[in-house]
Amino acid sequence: MAASPEPTTVLACEGICCHLPAEPRPVQVLHGISFSVSRRTSLGIVGESGAGKSMLIKTIMGLNPTARITGTVRLDGTDVASLAEKKRNAVIGRKVGIVFQNPMTSLNPFVRVGRQIEEHARYHLGLSRREAKERAIELLRVVGIADPEECYSFYPHHFSGGMKQRIMIATALACEPDLLIADEATTALDVTVQKEILDLLQVIQEERQMAMILVTHNLGIVAGRTDEVLVLYGGHVVEHGPTDRVFATPRHRYTAALLSAMPQLDQPAHTRLATIPGQPPNLANAPKGCPFAPRCPVATADCHETMPVMTVSADGRHRFACHFPVAAGAEAAP
C-alpha cells in the first residue's frame, strides 16, 4: 500500500485547536492537531479516555456546533471549515463515511436496514429509488451479509451486534466516500467478531482505494492494520509515524509506557506489568507543559513548564513531542 503511486491527500488537518465552552473559562480540548491521510492509506488514531479522539473526529465531521475551532480541515483540497453549514454537511456527508462505536444506537430500530443504507445515497447522490435499492443490496453483499435481498427488508433487531456493525459499514459506504472513519467501531464487540470487522474494513479500504481512519483506545487494533499511527494524549499529538516504527521504536515516553503496560500473549503468566502512575489527564485543568509530565518517570521541571516542540526524524516520517525521548535503538516493547 505504501508503495502505491502518487497518493493523493484526502484529508489534511492543519493546526486544529478546539475550545469547549465551560466555566469559569473555555476548556481547550485539542491543541494544534496536524496530520493528513492519503488515498489507499490508513491511519490509526490512538488515545485513552480524555485524549481528545472523539473531539477530533467531531471537529473533522463538523459535529461540534458549540465549540470554538481554529485551524483548517481540508477534504480533497476543499477547506470545509470555511463553508456554510449546509454546504459543509453536503460535502462531508458525500465524502466521508463514518462508523460509530454503538450500532445499537446508530441504527433506527423502526426502519428496515435496506432503507437506512439507501437514505444517504438518495439524499447525497440523488439516486432513484430503484438504483438506491440495487446499491443497498450490493453493499450488503460487500459487507458479507448472506442473502442480501432478504436482509434488505429486515429490521435492525434481527441482527447481532457484529452484523449490525456490518450494516453500519454498508451505510457508511453508501455514497462511495473517499474517507472511511471507524470511531471505536469494534470496541463493543467480542474479539472474534472484532477481528472479522477489522478484516472487513481492511478489505473494503483496499478494494475501494479509500483512505481510512481507525480511532481506538486499543493499540493492538492498529498494530499491523494501519500504515500510520497518531498517538494522542491530553489533546496533543505526542507521536506520529509509520505504525511498525512507532511500535518497534516508540520515541515518546507515553507511547513507550503504554506499550509496556499492556499484557502480552507471549509473556509468561504472572509477569509483572509496568505501570504508569497517576490518572489519565483531565482536559479541564491541563498542565502548562507536556501533558504527560505529571505521570512521566523522567520528567524534569522543564517538562512541567514548557510544551516540547515536535521533533521530526531524518526521513521526515516519524515525529514526536518529547524533551527526553526514548533512545531510537532502545527496545521498549517486549
Binding site: 447481532s160 472484532q194 481492511q202 493499540l219 493492538g220 487494533i221 511500535f247 518497534a248 502480552q264
Partner: peptide, 25 residues
C-alpha cells in the same frame, strides 16, 4: 485457537492479512 488468533496483538512487524470469511454464531 480462533480466540487466540483474534486477539489484537501489539506487534506491528507482522502484516495482518484480512480474512474474507465470516462465521455465524
Amino acid at each position: 485457537r480462533t480466540l487466540l488468533e483474534a486477539v489484537p496483538v501489539v506487534d506491528a512487524s507482522r502484516k495482518l492479512v484480512p480474512e474474507r470469511e465470516r462465521s455465524l454464531k
